[in-house]
Design a protein around this nucleic acid. Sequence first.
DNA 1: GGATTTGGTCTTGTATACAAAGATCGTTGA
DNA 2: TCAACGATCTTTGTATACAAGACCAAATCC
Lengths: 229, 229
Amino acid sequence: MTEVLVHTRRAETLREVLENDIVTGAYPAGTRLDEVMLATRFNVSRTPIREALIELSGAGLVEIRPRRGAFVREIGITRLIEMFEVMADLEAMCGRLAARRIRAEELAELEQIHEACVHAKAEGDPDAYFRANQAFHEAIYKASHNSFLEEQALLLQNRLKVYRRLQLRVPNRISGSLSEHGQIVEAIKAGEPQRAAEALRQHILIQGERFNDFVASVAGHVKSVSSRS
Amino acid sequence: MTEVLVHTRRAETLREVLENDIVTGAYPAGTRLDEVMLATRFNVSRTPIREALIELSGAGLVEIRPRRGAFVREIGITRLIEMFEVMADLEAMCGRLAARRIRAEELAELEQIHEACVHAKAEGDPDAYFRANQAFHEAIYKASHNSFLEEQALLLQNRLKVYRRLQLRVPNRISGSLSEHGQIVEAIKAGEPQRAAEALRQHILIQGERFNDFVASVAGHVKSVSSRS
DNA sequence: GGATTTGGTCTTGTATACAAAGATCGTTGA
DNA sequence: TCAACGATCTTTGTATACAAGACCAAATCC
């Protein structure tokens, strides 16, 4: 998870740190990211900061308003649901292709990760489950054998990471998630594209649809959709 | 098509111009984009050039190799087919949602654009058809009433623009495209999500699958997949 | 009293200067 | 002759300096 690699460009590492800070909520939505503030914080000049902000803007995490600065993007509930809707479709596509193209060793790994999920739940360790869950989905992306799709899925997954994590705090959600995983594995194993796709779509959509349930607990991250300036 | 808007940041306009140059093949795949060369060409300093290149790298059009420079990204045939596969799925999703959510005036506009396509074909004007065709697909994106999906579809459509354009040069492709459009409109009009989705998926996949037919004619743009450094 | 304008300050956007890593090419040694 | 090494030169990456638009507040006008 935590890259130890030393990048040659500072902008690269800065982007990763800032991305993490935004995703974890250290910089809540709407926060203005002052260039000199960040520059002093990281002991660099404004140049690499600007480049990092531009990268983040490309990833959709910050919004750059010309001559006004960079802001942590406000994600309205509507947009969040839209993103989950697309994520569900991407994951369904991964599942559909994986059911057709998965290799024996990939299937073995997927089942092994699924076991790890079961284990994490039994241990009652939500963080471990979150990590195993993420590995589970990434294994399916990879098994689609469409590297572009894999990249896109990873990108969007990353943007939704915080919210998926919060989702697991909902009572009984882990149990539900786990049994859905089981069905997904079954469908892929059986080589049934349609079933795998639908199982994955529902698995993701549940997170998006039930979102209103815990909107209150995310009040800091999610801004009401009515506040469109 | 051609934005008249004056952007406050030069990087923004530079990105658009460079994007266009890459997409039209003025800078073929693999070309090294020298910063000072571009700076002198546009009569600006390296700073906005760099920022534009970073944006393009985020969009996947150029690859920045640290300390070595920016290169127009080589898109192998495999990756191109993968991208079409994802595009097909995104468009199918747009169609599925549009069939459910399209509003009366949007449907009217869609039919009107479809008429424009028919007209352009009758006139034998490939460029006009290309533009109308693009408008047709964008109308469906919008009718999905999922603004995030719309953005993603537009982004990928833009990256595949050149290849879709070339596709229309294939004999009889325009006729086929047009009749497919007709079926898509029918399905959306009838409010049949499944049919609309499948019609759109096939409509896009045909372009990807038949791609090998004219790979030779794109030799300058597309690089053999075997050349992985 | 309220709205508007205007000056000042702050922050972004751009240019330029400097540092360091990579590429090139010639030389030297086997 | 060829390969390896090194000096130089080119080009990227970063810092700093400068220009200009945006925000704020006070003063002025209606």
